[in-house]
Design a protein around this nucleic acid. Structure first.
Length: 573
DNA sequence: CATGTTCGCGAGTGC
DNA sequence: GCACTCGCGAACAT
């Protein structure tokens, strides 16, 4: 039971600003494939796939990336056009990819131009069908808690401009009720409601706000539906990415001394099941264990550190500068090694100063994919004192869980801000490391319920992750519309959710059918952080993740979000 | 809604 | 210590 119930610990860092990486190409019109043919081919593909030796699947996994929280590294990912596609011409480095290569190809071609966004708008017929049920279901659920939602909403939106809505609502009230009556399951209630003698609840349910609520609810659910990652796309991307990662780790283990002990930690939203739209960003943290180190803060926010190796033999000695482990030296070598083994790969890598990742990009079935390979060192001693006031999950996940997490190692990634040659106590900024808890983030998100059964088959489904997906999506869309928001990233959204979970700790605060009100509460939180210009790192509260963007940018983003909210999220439509 | 598929992931096993 | 297998959960799909 230990094993399977709640594995508890996995790691997932989602540090990177997914948003930063947003590529316009991601949003292209969706071209539905013809039902008949598509289906047939689909079948075929699947079968073919099954034939591929399963063996292969296991091995590879991706690492997590260190967070790039406050400073969104703008990875100028240039989708370059390589064809990793399945052609026999597969790069030699990659282990032979038998059968499947061909298979996907054929079918793929058709799907190429799909884009998430469109999908949303033009649900293919099939999707539509499935959507309906969902919707209906939600409504049903909602109805039950209508009163509650209403209250919450009212509270939440102080100055919501529902005046107009309200007005129209009133007039349409009767109609709403009537409509409702039509929906199965509702009939009973409705009937009662219609009776003059039973005005109470009935009336309440039919209030204008509820109508608005229904609409918002429907939009959010539809949006979520469209954010789902297609199975085939995921499959194809995973195949390529896993192969690349495998290649890299094998190379490092076999051909290097200093990185021999590497282990890979898949992190980031893909591995947290929080990736939206397309499987186009992967984060793999490649961790090198270090023993006997002294870790000293660099700067005053507790996020950056210098690492001193105590005496003794270590494969990392070549990276020492006066006993200090030089992040820049180590990263340089790491990058060179990675480059070596992916040379024949359809990958290329631009890289930003101060960025801990080697970003590889490729194209799989017309989807530009980036893989951030992040060097990190794993420190097994206790967490830095700056974390003492962080990770306040006692009321949510429990103290024991927290202790479990704190017993795990933490990671440091070669990342700095500002100028690399700035010196502090004899240490150069470029040789410093930023702490990363992506593995803990991943574990927490995977195991996010106050009840052990949250989201399990036997338990109640919550909407925590759905809320986060929506917030990420909203932020991403706003950034696309206004490039001056580029300093904001998905890590801000994730951190906001983590804080929110600590203040609304019970699973009943996040009931799945209350998506709309929960999401709006989360927005309220986010707006609050933006207006205050303060969003503390979840693990290191002394670090303000909003110190990057200016106050006025924060305020204007807050304003934009409020606008969307008050108008029923037109941006999602 | 129930059932099936695939990927990710931890546990177990054998070497 | 490893590589590999097995079985399960999550999410997508039918």
């Amino acid at each position: 039971m230990t094993g399977r119930g709640r594995p508890g610990k996995a790691r997932s860092p989602d540090t990177k600003c997914a948003t930063c990486k947003t590529r316009p190409e991601e949003l292209k019109p969706y071209v539905p494939k013809s039902p008949g043919k598509g289906f047939a081919e689909e079948k075929q593909k699947r079968t073919t796939k099954e034939q591929k030796p399963k063996v292969q699947k296991k091995a590879v996994r991706f690492e997590e990336k260190p967070h790039v929280q406050s400073t969104c590294k703008d990875k100028t990912t240039k989708p370059f056009t390589e064809k990793t596609n399945k052609q026999q011409s597969t790069p030699t480095e990659i282990t032979k990819v038998p059968v499947q290569v061909t298979k996907a190809c054929a079918k793929r071609a058709e799907t190429t131009e799909q884009s998430v966004e469109k999908i949303t708008k033009t649900p293919k017929d099939t999707t539509k069908g499935s959507l309906k049920p969902t919707k209906a279901k939600k409504c049903g659920g909602k109805a039950k808690s209508a009163e509650k939602n209403l209250e919450e909403l009212t509270k939440v939106q102080p100055d919501a401009p529902k005046d107009t809505t309200t007005a129209s609502m009133k007039t349409t009230k009767a109609k709403t009720c009537a409509d409702k009556a039509k929906s199965p399951g509702k009939i009973k209630e409705t009937t009662t409601e219609m009776l003059p003698e039973t005005p109470k609840k009935t009336t309440k349910v039919c209030v204008p706000q509820e109508r608005r609520e229904d609409k918002v609810n429907s939009i959010l659910n539809k949006t979520l539906e469209n954010l789902k990652i297609k199975r085939d796309e995921r499959s194809d991307a995973a195949e390529v990415i896993n192969k690349i990662v495998k290649t890299i780790t094998v190379h490092l283990k076999k051909n290097t001394q200093c990185f021999k002990e590497v282990t890979d930690l898949p992190t980031g939203s893909y591995y947290e099941n929080l990736k939206i739209s397309k499987p186009d960003e992967f984060d793999i943290m490649l961790a090198i264990p270090v023993d006997r180190v002294n870790v000293n803060p660099f700067g005053d926010d507790g996020a950056y550190y210098s690492v001193e190796l105590k005496r003794g033999e270590s494969p990392l000695q070549k990276f020492l500068e006066k006993n200090i482990l030089s992040a820049s030296k180590m990263l340089k070598e790491f990058r060179d090694e990675v480059k070596k083994c992916v040379k024949r790969f359809p990958v290329c890598k631009p890289w930003k100063i101060g960025c801990p990742a080697v970003t590889l990009t490729t194209t799989v079935q017309s989807i530009a994919i980036s893989l951030d390979v992040v060097l990190s060192i794993m420190v097994k001693s206790s967490w830095p004192p700056f974390t003492n006031e962080g990770i306040k999950i006692d009321g949510w996940l429990g103290t024991k869980e927290k202790q479990e997490y704190k017993r795990k190692p933490y990671y440091l990634v070669p990342k700095y801000e500002g100028r690399g040659n700035v010196e502090n106590d004899g240490v150069l900024a470029k040789d410093t490391w930023r702490v990363s808890f992506s593995h803990i983030e991943k574990a927490i998100l995977k195991n996010h319920g106050s009840e052990k059964t949250c989201c399990e088959k036997a338990g109640a489904r919550c909407c925590r992750k759905d809320c986060l997906k929506l917030l990420k999506h909203l932020l991403k869309l706003l950034k696309e519309k206004d490039s001056s928001f580029d300093k904001f990233c998905s890590y801000h959204a994730k951190t906001t959710l983590l804080h929110a979970c600590c203040s609304r700790t019970k699973d009943s605060d996040w009931i799945g059918s209350n998506l709309s009100s929960c999401f709006q509460l989360l927005l309220k939180d986010f707006i609050g952080h933006l207006e205050a210009g303060v969003l503390n790192n979840f693990f290191i509260p002394t670090q303000n993740l909003l110190s990057g963007p200016t106050q006025s940018k924060c305020k204007s983003l807050a304003l934009r979000i409020r606008e969307e909210w008050e108008n029923g999220f037109p941006i999602f439509k």
